[in-house]
Write a protein that binds this DNA or RNA. Structure first.
Lengths: 215, 215
DNA sequence: CCAATGTGGTAATTTTTTTTACAAATTATT
DNA sequence: AATAATTTGTAAAAAAAATTACCACATTGG
C-alpha cells in the first residue's frame, strides 16, 4: 500500500545517533528531553531533529518535549531493532573476530551464529560460543538456519564471490567491510564500511588543517 | 593566503572512491578514462564527477577524457597520500590488530609505529614488527616520535580520556572507532567509524525492504 | 586537411536539504 | 485562575547539492 513518501538517506543516517544518545539518557534516568537539549548533545540543530522525528510521527508534546523512554523505544522500532537478526560473518580474521565478539551488537538483537573461513587452522575453533566453520558449508548453513544478515570480512579478491553465495542462499542484507562495491540484485540491501575511504578522508582533512596552520 | 572556497564535505567523501577506481584502472593498464566511463564504474553521474574534480583543477582534456595515471596521482596528492603519516593505535584488541595488520594502509603511507594497551598480557608482544606497548607510555611515545595520527580502538568508556591524551601530546588527527562523539579542541580533526550506526542503518534498510516485500 | 564525434568545463536550472519563523498546545509560576 | 515561559509540529524561506544543457576544444577517421 502507498507509503506516504520515502524518507531521505540523510535523515536515516542520523537516526542511529539519536538512538544512541537517547539510550545514554535512559541509563542516566533522565525522563524528558527537548529538541533543544538533544541538539546540544548531538550537534544537529533542534529544528532538524524535530523535522527528522516527524517523518515517523509526532513523538513529542508541546511545552514538554520528548519522553526519553518512549522516544528511545520508538526509534528502536523505526530502526528495526525490536526483532532478532540471525547473523553470520564470513572471514574469521581479526576484523571478523572483532565483530563477532562485540557485545553491543548482540545486545541489540544481532545474534552471531557462526564465522566462516577458508583457513584450515581456524576451522573448528570456537570463539566464546561462536564456531568457525568451513566456508564450503556456508550456503547450506544459511539455508538451514534462515540467516538474515551476512557480514563480509574477507580480502577484496573474494568479496564478490562471497556476496554472490550469500545472495544465492537467500540473504537479504549484507554488511560489507571489503574495499569494493558489491554487485547484488536489487532486492538485497548492502551497507558498506569502507575503512580506506574513511582513513583517506581523515588524511585530506589533516592535510587541509596543516595547510591552514602554515598561513 | 585566501583559498578560493571551501570544498564541501559531500565532495570530499567521494574523492577516495575515485582514487580507488583509478587505482584499479591503473593496475589494469588502462591509460585513459572519460567521466562517462567513470560514472558507470562508480555510480555517480558523469557531470557530478566532472564538477567534483573541477574543485581542484582541470585534470581532463576535452575530446580525450582523463589520463588515468595522472588523475590517480593528482587525487593522491589532494587526499594527502603523497606523504607518510606516523600512526599509532590505542587498544590492541581484535579491531586494533586488524587495523595494524592491514597492508592497504601501510601501502598508502600510513606507517603503523606501535599499538598501546592496558592489558599486561598483551604488553610486550610483537605483531609482525609492531610492538604492543603499555598505554602508560603513550604520551611520551607520541612526543618523542612526532606521531601524526592516533587510532582509538578502545572501549567507549575510556575513549574520551585517550583522546584527551592524544591531543595533549600534540596529535592533530584522530581516527575514532569507539561509539562516541569525542570532544576535542577545534584544531584537531576527527574521523569517526561508528559501526553501530552503520549496522543500525542496515537494519533499517532491511526492515523497509521486508515491509515492501509484504505489500 | 576537414568534418564528425567525443569530451571536459561550467553556467543555469532543478531538486534536496537545512534553517528560519511562528501558531498551537502544554507546562510552570504567581 | 490567569499569565508567562516552553516547546513541538510544520510552513515558508534559504542554502546546498545534483542535474541539465551547452560551448569550446581535442581527437579520430576519412
Amino acid at each position: 500500500m502507498g507509503k506516504k513518501s520515502k524518507v531521505s538517506m540523510a535523515v536515516i543516517r542520523r537516526l542511529p545517533k539519536y538512538y544512541r544518545y537517547l539510550g545514554e539518557l535512559l541509563d542516566r534516568d533522565i525522563k524528558r528531553i527537548s529538541s533543544q537539549q538533544l541538539s546540544e548533545l548531538t550537534g544537529f540543530t533542534a529544528s532538524q531533529i524535530r523535522q527528522d522525528l516527524n517523518n515517523f510521527g509526532g513523538f513529542g508534546q508541546q511545552g514538554y518535549g520528548y519522553n526519553v523512554e518512549e522516544l528511545h523505544k520508538q526509534l528502536g522500532k523505526i530502526l528495526g531493532l525490536q526483532k532478532t537478526y540471525k547473523t553470520i560473518i564470513v572471514g574469521a580474521g581479526n576484523l571478523g573476530q572483532a565483530i563477532a565478539h562485540y557485545r553491543g551488537f548482540q545486545r541489540e538483537g544481532f545474534k552471531m551464529l557462526a564465522l566462516f573461513d577458508i583457513n584450515p587452522r581456524l576451522i573448528g575453533l570456537k570463539l566464546w560460543d561462536i564456531e568457525i566453520k568451513d566456508v564450503e558449508t556456508l550456503e547450506d548453513f544459511i539455508k538451514e538456519n534462515e540467516v538474515d544478515i551476512g557480514v563480509i570480512c574477507t580480502p577484496k579478491e573474494v568479496s564478490q564471490e562471497i556476496a554472490d553465495k550469500l545472495v544465492k542462499s537467500g540473504i537479504k542484507a549484507i554488511w560489507n567491510f571489503a574495499p569494493t562495491d558489491l554487485k547484488v540484485s536489487k532486492d538485497v540491501v548492502v551497507e558498506n564500511v569502507h575503512l580506506n575511504e574513511s582513513l583517506f578522508t581523515l588524511s585530506y582533512l589533516l592535510k587541509e588543517k596543516l595547510k591552514k596552520d602554515e598561513e
